[in-house]
Simulated scan of single mutants.
Amino acid sequence: MKATVRNALRHWLLAAVPALAACALPVAAQESYPTRPVRIIVQYQAGGSTDTMARLLADKLAPRLGQPVVVENRSGAGGIIGTDYVAKSPADGYTLLMTVPGPVTANIVLYRKLPYDPRTDLRMVSDVATMRTVLAVHPSVPATDFKSLLATIAAAPDKYAMGSWGAGTQPHQVQVYMDKTYGTRTLHVPYKGEGPMAVDLIAGQIQMTVGSVTTLAPYIAAGKLRALAVVGPTRAKALPDVPTFAEQGYKDAVYGMTGPTSLMAPARTPDAIVERLGREVAAAVNEPDLRRRIEELGAEPVGNLPAQATAAYQAFLPISLKLTRDTGVTLD
């Protein structure tokens, strides 16, 4: 009887060892992460604000992770191509996404056949920085604040055009909201990016936009554009003399919503890896030289942890979806 028990126990152990070893492999991989280069995917072309932010962060993360951190641009389709690529990548912490809000919020409403669902296919690592935006007009527009702009465009229906970097994006949301709320009639002119839009605004081909402080602040400083109001609850550090919409008496949600530039990972990336990445991003963003570089871009450093970034995303999402639905735009 005893021999039988010993034999059974020996057979059980022999069978269990491979299974236990297999279970230990993912844990060991997480503890040694990373063992090879990490990629940060940007959904837009090189040279834009998101790309610049990703490269600044990559330079700081590489020594912290002990591996190269490489930025790779996969642009197109309103951010869908790059976002979908990361959503479908192995959930091992080696392929990450640097994103602005649109591809992981507004696109849910805009596109009838979105190939990913950011709510279930991706998870937050950290909000790196808040990219502030500003309502700016061409100098030919006779307005010095938001109230006088509304009066100006109300007096000339269909004369003034609002540029955007795509249907459903923040400037388009503001344009639609203005027309619905105040009875104005403006034109929407979508571009494939903020750069081409800014060129046409400076040339007077369009008359106004809500654009990133990063892109527009140099032209505002040079007198080529006039800033009327910044979006968000506080003034932008890069434009301290420009009042918020709220300071001018306009406290609607569309004028107060600021969105972060965030680092995300495939949804099934292990908690241990996500937490490690979140801690390293937070530490990097808190380094004085990186904070200074972010502020020089017209953005405001955040560097929160995964749980905080997730909570912020869940709070931001319904507001963004409602504003996007209000535009009435859907795309194939």
Rank of each mutant, 00 (worst) to 15 (best):
G328W: 04
G278M: 00
D271V: 10
A29M: 02
M257T: 15
A136T: 14
Q30N: 10
T310P: 04
G328L: 06
L122R: 08
A309P: 04
R55Q: 15
L201F: 12
P266Y: 02
R291W: 03
R292Q: 14
D117Y: 11
E300T: 12
A106Y: 06
T169W: 08
Q205K: 15
P115L: 02
P171R: 09
L114W: 11
L216P: 00
R36Y: 02
A284R: 02
A284S: 13
V70R: 11
D200I: 07
A167D: 13
Q43A: 14
T120W: 07
T330C: 06
A253F: 04
R292W: 06
Q308A: 15
A87K: 05
P266G: 07
G168R: 05
Y219C: 01
V281C: 01
R325C: 06
V242W: 03
A29L: 12
D326G: 03
F316A: 14
A21D: 00
A87E: 03
T269A: 06
Q248A: 10
A155M: 09
F146H: 06
G249Q: 05
Q30C: 14
T130K: 02
G166S: 09
L61T: 04
V69E: 04
A315T: 15
G82K: 02
P68M: 11
Y182K: 07
M257L: 15
D59V: 13
I202V: 15
M53N: 10
V100Q: 11
G183D: 07
A154G: 11
V125G: 08
R39H: 12
M1Q: 12
A154T: 14
A203K: 13
G195D: 14
A22I: 10
E287M: 05
T327A: 12
V285A: 01
Y44G: 04
Y160S: 05
K113Y: 13
G303F: 01
L57M: 07
V274A: 09
V189C: 01
T95C: 08
A312K: 09
V137N: 08
A156I: 01
Y116V: 09
E287K: 01
K192A: 15
G223E: 08
L13P: 00
R226I: 11
P318D: 07
S75A: 15
T327F: 10
P243I: 03
P115R: 01
L305D: 03
T330F: 09
A129G: 00
K322E: 13
D127Q: 12
V42M: 09
A28F: 01
Q170S: 11
H11I: 12
F316V: 02
G195H: 08
